[in-house]
Nucleic acid binder design. Structure first.
Lengths: 216, 216
DNA sequence: AACGGAGTTCTTGTATACACGATTGTTGAC
DNA sequence: GTCAACAATCGTGTATACAAGAACTCCGTT
């Protein structure tokens, strides 16, 4: 537990939302949350204010908080922005790569290879996250890294759905290989282009997303 | 005043920070703010939690809230990300331009021309903001529009400093012209490239920024 | 004179109390 | 039977009270 209850609650509720325990559109009753976590309403309210500021929930005055339902189109828009930011991270990574970042990317890339070979999509899901984080870090822009990490978190549930699609894991891994090559070769523009394609969801991948969102 | 005091306070304090009334590093005392605005500590705390979540202030547990001082390097990173997002907005605007957006861009562009010709850098500062907002809107991506607007707000003070640099207003206007041409011609990649260059701060413009940040 | 420690004060973190608006349920009229 | 108005209830918004940690002061020691 964090040093103050408010932060802890924020993380706790955020996780519950991202793990789909609190579903989009669901009402978050302050009193219910307070008793559930064994605290008073005050820290609950503070946690909710923060989640509202982040954009995970919406607090309608005098009418309580509800989990925001982004809807397929907005999720698409979020992936679009994510693709752009990851592209920038890749560009910077290629230009600013140093020994430590190179090794971090290699290591996470290796782990992705193993879990992809094993066909373990849950393991790949986790390793993939670490791989992307290694690229953010290699870009050496704290602000960009934070923005990427935040958006990545918010898109986590949808990313997970995507990996369930047939062959997506192996395709993803092949794309990683090309990305690593471009970054290690110092070809920033190529890394950017590849990452944009890797993260963005064009064509049939968009329909896959919509389909999986509809059926959960 | 907004319907609830918390929101109102958030906006109020946010403006005070962005207008440099509350300076970076300054301590924000809850009790002082509460008496100043004539409310209790509760809504003040809620406002502060939100500002913390947005990243404008930092709340250190049991040690109060302080205004975050981004520092030149981090401001540079923020401009870097902003350039990328604006580039994407330009690309989308060129691809999705419709009559209404076209007219909105034309109108704001025209206002920029007038204030640039008059050499009124304060007026230009405002018109420039509207011009960029028109481009975000033309991109037809609500999420991107929100992200752009939020970053734009946070970078406002620095943008203002930049315009004070000699000839920056007229240079900026010339760049606007090229951007409008690219968007109207439907050349998305060109619009992206130009907007990246327009918003980003490379070379001597970075030193200008650092210099003006140091002397305020 | 400088440093360290104990006590005091001040501020934050959490709980509780109260007020007001929204929602819901019930009753009566058409 | 349906709709509207009023009442009761429930939940949020704000204030205040209390607890606990951090900072500051003052005094003593080296």
């Amino acid at each position: 537990m964090s040093e103050n209850v408010g932060r802890w609650l924020r993380d706790e509720i955020e996780n519950s939302i991202l793990s789909n325990e609190f579903r989009p559109g669901e009402r978050l009753d302050e009193m219910v949350l307070a008793t559930r976590f064994g605290v008073s309403r005050t820290p609950v309210r503070e946690a909710l204010m923060q989640l509202d500021a982040i954009g995970l929930i919406e607090i309608r005055p005098r009418r309580g908080a509800v989990v925001i339902d982004p809807g397929p189109h907005r999720v698409y828009e979020m992936f679009e922005v994510m693709a752009e930011l990851e592209g920038l991270a890749g560009l910077l990574a290629a230009r600013r790569l140093d020994k430590a970042s190179r090794e971090a990317i290699m290591a996470t890339h290796g782990r992705c290879e193993r879990s992809a070979a094993a066909g373990d999509s849950d393991a790949y899901y986790y390793d993939n996250e670490e791989f992307h984080k290694a690229i953010y870090a290699a870009g050496r822009s704290d602000f960009l890294e934070e923005q990427c990490a935040q958006l990545h978190r918010r898109l986590r549930p949808y990313r997970r759905l995507q990996l369930r699609v047939r062959n997506r894991v192996s395709t993803s891994y092949l794309e990683h290989c090309a990305i690593v090559d471009a970054i290690f070769a110092g070809d920033g523009e190529e890394a950017r282009r590849l990452l944009r394609g890797h993260v963005g969801i064009q064509g049939e991948r968009f329909s896959d997303l919509v389909a999986s969102m509809a059926t959960r």
